[in-house]
Design a protein around this nucleic acid. Structure first.
Length: 514
DNA sequence: CTGGGGAGGGGGCCC
DNA sequence: AGGGCCCCCTCCCCA
């Protein structure tokens, strides 16, 4: 008996030692990762400082031009110049804001070519270099990027700053720049929940809840090795999940939207349009998927695609959207009222804004908040969705999501739990639609990313699917392989023929659809 | 009613 | 044998 007691005592002591060792190891890991996060936060802060400085410069430019314009107007016209100028600049500010949606007062900026000191009232407000309306966020980004110039990095490097600064929290202040020192009221200090800092697009919201962690998401980092992060963080590449019974957890989603000036393929960094799977969620390795705030309606993305590809804004202008880093700070006990105020970024926002929102926002739909755009269904039997609060170990609890909003998914048997025979193991985190294979979800995500890798050699059209390009090329070739057996009509689309034949059969088209 | 683009599903081939 | 990829089919939607 005594031996038994001694044995138990020894066991207990060994357990304690092991536990202490484990705790120490965990602490070390946390410290290491925290250092990395701090570094990235600092970099982000530097970049934001540089952008703010640039905005101030642009403001000065505006003021100067305004003064010049005032003088000129006084000379040239009998109309009270102040009113006209005010109109003009008010208009510019409105356009800028409508496009970007979040430039703060006092930071409205635009770029006007040197020597262009007058504005005509009938002149569309465009980026003079691109000829593209500034309502396109991409243009605004281009202005920023261009104005920032090569010296920005240098400038940033000269500014070391308090990392705590990066934890300034912005909540409930849509479209307000995260840090605008002179003209913007400081963010409400009360809730300290999250912060996002995005180059030129500071009005983003990330919300989450967990233990106090600072997570850095390199969301859109054009020209950077955006693959390094998941690798550094110990995740594998996208691929099939290791095993069906593993807990596949969404990690994070990266996207790069850029284009080259030669009009070639717009690289959206699609190889990162994916999620990385980890079988265990470590407290130091929690990754937030980023969910677009507004509903990704088809129209939004089509519009985006249209503006980007069809109109060739990106292609022709070589505009690069850069959203450098997003820093998220999550505090304990933050309620999951992840602000469903869609109006913040809702209608009236630019297409580009939508794209960014998609990357930046976690709020609006608590059900999908903090999930990556793509993840494996974890619980195939579950339809309910929740990202429950962290469990006692600080882990996220992810359940699968079925977005009831996606009517099309329902109509076409989409959704994670549709009754189709094939198991829909792959879930798009943007719309929560389920797919049976990874390829399909990757293709599907082009809807959200706007990636259209297939371009027509005879026109500007681009397509997300090769098959659609092939069909499209019949427009150029005039090939109409589908002919009606009852008339001489020929069609380039098989479905057009099928639809046409309803005319002969007298079948009601609506009834046919039903 | 047609033209045509967007998008999902599934089969077949290859590794 | 299973997964990835390519391709085609199909349907929806809009102009």
């Amino acid at each position: 008996m005594a031996n038994c007691m001694v044995f138990h005592t020894q066991i207990a002591s060994i357990m304690e030692v092991l536990a202490n060792a484990a705790v120490a190891e965990i602490c070390k890991l946390v410290d290491d990762d925290y250092a990395v996060f701090r570094l990235e936060i600092t970099q982000s802060q530097k970049e934001n400082r540089a952008l703010r400085r640039k905005l101030q410069l642009l403001e000065l430019k505006v003021s100067r031009e305004r003064a010049e314009r005032t003088t000129q107007e006084r000379v040239l016209t009998s109309r009270p110049s102040s009113a006209k100028i005010l109109d003009r600049y008010r208009g510019m500010a409105r356009v800028t804001l409508s496009g970007e949606g979040h430039l703060t007062e006092g930071h409205r900026s635009f770029v006007k070519p040197v020597g262009h000191n007058t504005w005509r009232d009938d002149q569309p407000i465009t980026d003079e270099r691109s000829g593209t309306s500034t309502k396109n966020i991409i243009v605004i980004e281009s202005v920023d990027a261009e104005a920032a110039g090569p010296g920005v990095k240098q400038e940033r490097s000269e500014r070391e700053e308090d990392p705590r600064h990066s934890r300034e929290i912005q909540t409930g202040a849509p479209h307000v720049a995260t840090e605008v020192p002179t003209t913007t009221a400081p963010a409400p200090p009360n809730t300290q929940r999250s912060i996002m800092e995005v180059s030129g697009t500071p009005n983003a919201f990330l919300k989450s809840e967990t233990d106090t962690k600072t997570l850095t998401h390199r969301l859109l980092h054009t020209g950077s090795d955006h693959r390094s992060d998941p690798e550094r963080l110990g995740q594998g590449r996208l691929g099939c999940p290791p095993a069906n019974d593993s807990e596949y957890l969404p990690v994070f989603h990266q996207r790069t939207v850029n284009s080259r000036g030669d009009g070639d393929t717009l690289d959206t960094g699609v190889d990162d349009l994916s999620c990385f799977y980890t079988t265990e969620m470590e407290p130091v390795n929690i990754h937030l998927g980023l969910e677009r705030q507004t509903d990704l309606s088809k129209g939004d993305w089509n519009q985006y695609s249209s503006s980007v590809y069809s109109e060739g804004c990106l292609d022709k202008k070589g505009v690069v959207i850069v959203v450098d880093e997003v820093t998220v700070k999550m505090e304990d006990d933050v309620p999951l009222t992840l602000n469903a105020d869609k109006t913040q970024l809702g209608e009236g926002h630019s297409q580009g804004r939508d794209v960014l929102d998609y990357r930046e926002s976690l709020d609006t739909n608590p059900n999908v908040a903090t999930q990556s755009p793509l993840h494996i269904l974890r619980d195939r039997d579950s339809v309910s969705t929740s990202m429950g609060p962290s469990d006692s170990h600080g882990r996220f609890v992810f359940d699968q999501v079925l977005n009831s909003k996606d009517q099309r998914a329902k109509a076409q048997g989409g959704g994670a739990t549709s009754g189709n025979g094939k198991e829909k193991r792959f879930l798009c985190m943007s719309c929560n639609k389920g797919f049976s294979c990874l390829q399909n979800v990757e293709t599907h995500q082009r809807v959200h990313t706007g990636e259209k890798p297939f371009s027509c050699t005879q026109c500007h059209m681009r397509f997300a699917q090769a098959g659609n390009l092939k069909i499209h090329q019949r427009v150029h070739t005039g090939v109409k392989p589908f002919s009606c057996t009852q008339c001489h009509m020929r069609f380039s689309h098989s479905y057009s023929l099928k639809r046409h034949q309803r005319v002969h059969t007298g079948e009601n088209s609506t009834a046919a659809i039903v």
